[in-house]
């Protein structure tokens, strides 16, 4: 698997640390309540097919990326800076 970092280009999967579902970009307010925090920390759509997840370019530029990917084929469809995705 290879991921195209917007800053570094096409790179091997080994250079990236996997964080998980891109829910981290929608962090609830501290007082949002137990349900919202359960959704955020634990519950997952866990799709078989297209998904969005967060990868950290640890052995590269150090950017957090939001990657659009297919969990069934392992095809990487798109990667953009998490900072842009969160905007």
């Amino acid at each position: 698997m290879r991921i195209t970092c917007p800053l570094c280009g096409d790179r091997d999967r080994r250079e990236f640390y996997y964080k998980g579902a891109a829910v981290a970009l929608d962090r609830p307010e501290p007082d949002a309540g137990a349900e919202a925090w359960d959704e955020y920390v634990f519950l997952r759509d866990n799709p078989a097919g297209e998904t969005r997840d967060l990868w950290y370019h640890a052995d590269g530029c150090g950017a957090w990326l939001e990657v659009r990917r297919d969990t069934v084929t392992h095809a990487v469809l798109e990667a953009r800076l998490a900072a842009e995705a969160a905007r």
């Binding site: 998980g20 634990f42 519950l43 997952r44 759509d45 866990n46 078989a48 969990t71």
Partner: peptide, 18 residues
């Protein structure tokens, strides 16, 4: 590994990643 899909048929979201 298919728990999330089948639970979703009953409207549930699970604390599971495959």
């Amino acid at each position: 590994g298919r728990s999330s899909q089948v639970a979703a048929m009953a409207g549930m979201r699970l604390p599971i990643e495959s």
